[in-house]
Amino acid sequence: MPNVASLANPAVFSRLAARALPWLTALAVGTLALGAWAAFFVAPPDYQQGDTARIMYVHVPAAWMASFVYATMCLAALGTLIWRHPLADAAQKAAAPLGAGFTFVCLATGSIWGRPMWGAWWVWDARLTSVLVLFLIYLGIVLLWQAIEDFSRAARAAAILTLVGAVNIPIVKFSVDWWNTLHQPSSVFRLGGPTVDGRMLWPLIAMGFGFLFLFLALHVAAVRNEILRRRLRRLTLRAADDSAPARPMVLEPAQ
């Protein structure tokens, strides 16, 4: 079993990724299939919202992942700025578009759920607004990586932006407690335990694990892609160097 430090070696990481990916993919597909089946055929309709509450089984796991991926990126950002871990910046870069995707799912499904329940596609409520800000931060980080060509400068800038944006994560979590929001308060991760009925809770947890395994599989694959991209860049530069004709040295006469 390799220790954590040896994972810093891209070759070791790529080998481990090749072994882990089929398992993570199978776990993701299995738990998502189980969760989707249970969401439609096992979980009862909500006593107030009826079948519309079945949107919860994609909305809530997406919301959990939106924050979880950001927390992962914060760890990677610390890895870049403090420990200068060789794979930390690759992990951070790979996670940003995935986090943006989960946050988009959270916002879109929440909006679709809000229309029949609240009578509005969108309200400028503290929870919705803070999640929209989270989505914009994700997009900002993705764009920052695209905008700066020098890899180490891009990594440092993205790490700083990620850590500054981390202030929004507790706001997302506690907005429903701090302000009077239209969005309901937490019903799963709360002091005193979940308030969701067990027959609805386990399909929700299954979908949560499905989303988590999917993220892990995609993240491992995306970090491996990042390693390949750097290798490709190195090789392209070397090939360009090798094929460049030797320039004759021209000595300019002194003026």
């Binding site: 079948d51 519309t52 949107i55 799912v105 499904t109 759920w113």
Partner: peptide, 17 residues
Amino acid sequence: PAHSGFILAAWAIASAT
């Protein structure tokens, strides 16, 4: 069920994304 269009739309968007 009532609001089935909303339920299907939400699941379709999530799956497609």
